[in-house]
Amino acid sequence: MPRRAFRRDARGVSTIEFAILSPVLFLIICGGLEIGHTMYVQSVLTGQMQKAGRDLALEGSANVDARIALQAGVTNAVKTLVAKPTITFVTKAYHDYRNVGRPEEYVDTNGNGICDNNEPYVDANNSGSWDKDASNKGPEGAKDVVLFEATVKYDRMIVGPLFPFGKEVQLTSSTLLRNQPSTEQAAAPQRNCP
């Protein structure tokens, strides 16, 4: 075959193009499936946590048996979608909604960003000292705001084995509820930082 004819011969070009593009196409499809699966697991986890929040509001978050049953419900829902997940639950009680996930309020009179120099603060958890986490250290009480949080970790299905980085997925969902007002909630005392 002459050289000119060989240059114009297009047979087999589509096979070479497919060989070049197929790995990219494979990664796009697998990545899309992985993202879709992760979004679905997050959606189920969020739905179960919302259900747990509603149920705990009715049962009372201090009811240990109800809390264990709700944790089992969340765990079972996730285990139907993911192989060998690690699920951890955190429950924290706060005096009110504005304290959730925040340090105790204080007046920073010297502007150094630290509660010191006899600056006044609201001891929301009644621990006797200023805390970076305003959650109660003891048992939760009436009208306390309870944070119920679940963290799920699991290995990726498809893309994880192909790449050494990003092998694990971590999803978190939380819900807040307020305990029933069975008794009056004590006011948070005002104290001074050392």
Rank of each mutant, 00 (worst) to 15 (best):
G141Q: 14
L177Y: 00
D96E: 08
S61A: 15
G113Q: 11
L27E: 03
A19H: 00
G128K: 10
D96K: 02
S22P: 06
N118E: 01
A66C: 10
I29R: 01
F89G: 05
A69V: 05
T175H: 06
W130F: 10
D144Q: 08
E59Q: 10
K143V: 08
I68Q: 08
A142H: 02
T88Q: 08
F148Y: 12
K84A: 11
S61E: 06
T86D: 09
N125T: 08
E17Y: 08
P189V: 05
T46E: 12
L58I: 12
R11K: 12
A62S: 14
P164A: 14
L176A: 03
I35D: 00
V145I: 09
S182A: 11
A66E: 03
Y94D: 03
I35A: 15
V152D: 00
P2M: 08
N192Y: 08
D108H: 09
E59D: 15
K167P: 01
N126L: 07
A187G: 07
L58P: 04
M49I: 14
G31Y: 06
A93Q: 07
D9S: 07
S127P: 01
E59W: 06
G53T: 09
V90Q: 13
A142E: 03
Q48S: 12
G32E: 03
A66I: 06
M39W: 03
V78D: 03
F163H: 07
L25F: 15
D123E: 00
G47M: 04
A69W: 03
R54Y: 15
C30Q: 00
Y40H: 06
R3L: 14
L177C: 00
R178T: 15
N136W: 08
K167Y: 11
G36H: 04
K79R: 11
S14Q: 10
Q71C: 06
A93P: 06
C115P: 01
Q190K: 12
G36Q: 00
V82P: 04
N179G: 01
V44C: 00
P164H: 15
Y121R: 00
I114K: 03
S135K: 05
L171K: 03
L33M: 15
V169Q: 09
V13S: 14
D123I: 05
E140Q: 15
K51W: 06
Q185D: 04
R8V: 14
E140L: 09
E105H: 15
A10H: 09
V13Y: 04
P164G: 11
F89C: 08
S129Q: 07
D9M: 14
I29Q: 03
N117D: 15
A19M: 01
